[in-house]
């Protein structure tokens, strides 16, 4: 496995060096990376999947001075967050804010704690870490119109969003998720949970030295539903009447089948 990885990496490096003059970013040749698979298929037995993110680095500093940060972001969506308050003795949704666009999935893995790798300004610039994701307050739903929402209020909702997503394993920060082998190769393993949003994911690889980005590469990963589940989902959204009638038909057939079966027994 490791041999295969380093072999691939060498080929990729050679190719990059050959075209080095054409590289759009000056530092792009410091890092090459790839994924173990670029398509995740969600079928009926899907309970999550592991992907391997790996690559090679060309460190310029002394041994051990390079850090790698891997970011995987799901498709961006808008989310309405609701906050429960006690009204007349019971807990009800009393306040709402719509935030967006925010990725439905976000994972960051690194060789060390992010705070030790880069200063806040750099992390904020590259949106490394869920707290640095850029979004705005939207007024898409009438109840979410909140002219009085202050920055502290927005931060509270954003923190809650990250907390709930982390609880569902859809947001994660792993400061020991990337391991560097012999100052050259790196690998990170990521476990994608079962509640993944579907769509195109962006993978980003950063090579940091002395708190600055010296290498960067980006790629894509697609997460798609497949098989019977896909058919059901597409029908449910595009032909809801047909889907509903299909549900009733199956239920009727099953009820009739059982009644007939147990009548004979």
């Amino acid at each position: 496995m490791k041999t295969a990885v380093s072999f691939l990496a060498t080929i990729a490096l050679t190719a990059l060096c050959a075209s080095g003059g054409m590289a759009q970013k000056a530092h792009a040749n410091a890092l090459v990376a790839d994924l173990s698979k670029d398509q995740i298929r969600v079928a009926s037995n899907f309970t999550g999947e592991k992907i391997l993110l790996f690559g090679a680095i060309e460190g310029t500093g002394p041994s051990g001075a390079s850090d790698v940060v891997v970011v995987v972001r799901g498709p961006s969506e808008n989310f309405t967050l609701r906050r429960k308050k006690r009204v007349a003795g019971i807990w009800v949704n009393a306040e709402a804010r719509t935030l967006g666009p925010l990725p439905g999935y976000y994972a960051v893995a690194s060789t060390r704690a992010l705070a030790d790798i880069a200063p806040v300004s750099e992390r904020a610039k590259h949106q490394i870490g869920p707290e640095y994701l850029r979004f705005s307050l939207l007024n898409q739903t009438p109840e979410a119109a909140a002219p009085h929402a202050g920055p502290r209020d927005i931060a509270l909702y954003h923190d809650s969003f990250v907390r709930i997503k982390s609880g569902q394993n859809l947001y994660s920060v792993d400061p020991n998720g990337v391991s560097i082998i012999a100052d050259r190769l790196f690998r990170a393993e990521l476990t994608l949970p079962s509640g993944l949003p579907f769509g195109t994911y962006i993978t980003e690889f950063f090579l940091f030295e002395k708190g600055r980005v010296v290498g960067y590469q980006t790629g894509e990963l697609s997460v798609a539903i497949t098989g019977l589940e896909q058919w059901l989902r597409v029908t449910a959204h595009d032909m809801p009447l047909l889907y509903g009638l299909f549900g009733v038909f199956i239920a009727g057939l099953m009820g009739w089948g059982v009644a007939t079966l147990f009548r004979r027994v």
Binding site: E77, N78, T80, R83, S160, K165, I225, R233, D238
Partner: peptide, 16 residues
Amino acid sequence: FEPAELFSIQRLEVGP
């Protein structure tokens, strides 16, 4: 009783 999590999330753009 006060729920453990006071916030909830609803996705706005739902697609297949």
